[in-house]
Design a protein around this nucleic acid. Structure first.
Lengths: 146, 146
DNA sequence: TTAAATGTAACTAACATTGTTACTATATGG
DNA sequence: CCATATAGTAACAATGTTAGTTACATTTAA
């Protein structure tokens, strides 16, 4: 692996969650926090929106807000939103039809891959976005947000 | 992700485990079973050897054999042998020092990443190579190995 | 001593990832 | 109503990863 979209998406979600309600956070502000380009942020926002985690508004004073309360969002939802791909890949080549092991290996690996992916998913599901924002509120206490 | 080295390495380990003891399985035979190039196999064998799972012998009638019995090898060992990289990646950019969230996010993500990686590792650790070879022996019963 | 095997370096092709520019569509404040 | 600030998205570049391939040195047994 490994791409950093889950880290970026979680960063975005916590930033939006911690942002005040008086105005919306926009992709430029988020890009500043991530130290990247606004288009990178908007691409991730697009994925989060498709997953029903974020809502956005275009136009002047537009930006992003959470579709749900942070207590009702778990980290696996964020992970799944930006990381569709499977965790494990099978051998991309065709099976060798003269080799019975080659023909059967995929069916043997499949339950192993599924169990491991589920274990990872359950771990991420057990953490709510609100838990991250609570920790961050404490860590950043006293440091005023701009 | 995802690369297919874990799938290939597990394929190799099961093939070597199921191979008769009278001669050694070599990279050409394994490459036939994986439908790939012998060098791809030898690269994976090299990783498995460094991890202490495989032993090899060069020269005429050389090849590979298991360093331990299949009952004493679990799938996480194979995974770790060929997939050093972390499962999750952090945002590669420097933190924005004017943003406290940006500075603290990594420390908040770290325990999440570790817990999820451990959950995945424990799932893979719970499966022994011998379990795969047993299933394969049954599935391939009657189909004679060349 | 010859042939068959491992070990490994160097290279290619295909693909993924991130960042960037440029543009359109949209909505708001004045 | 218009100017401006925003999202949305396509197109492209730079970089890195992956799998495959060729080539060759080294090792070992027949």
């Amino acid at each position: 692996m490994a791409n950093s979209r889950f880290a970026m998406a979680t960063h975005i979600m916590t930033a939006v969650a911690l942002h005040g309600d008086d105005d919306l956070m926009n992709s430029g502000e988020l890009a500043d926090s991530l130290n990247t380009n606004p288009v990178v942020v908007r691409r991730i926002l697009s994925d989060l929106q498709k997953a029903g985690l974020i809502q956005t508004q275009a136009g002047r004073s537009g930006g992003a807000w959470l579709a749900r309360k942070p207590e009702a969002i778990n980290l696996h939802e964020i992970f799944a939103a930006v990381d569709d791909g499977e965790l494990f890949a099978y051998n991309p080549n065709d099976p060798n039809k003269t080799c019975s092991l080659s023909c059967e290996i995929k069916s043997v690996l499949e339950p192993v891959f599924k169990a491991a992916s589920s274990a990872l998913a359950e771990s991420l599901m057990s953490v709510r976005l609100s838990q991250l924002t609570e920790v961050l509120s404490k860590k950043c206490a006293g440091k005023k947000k701009k």
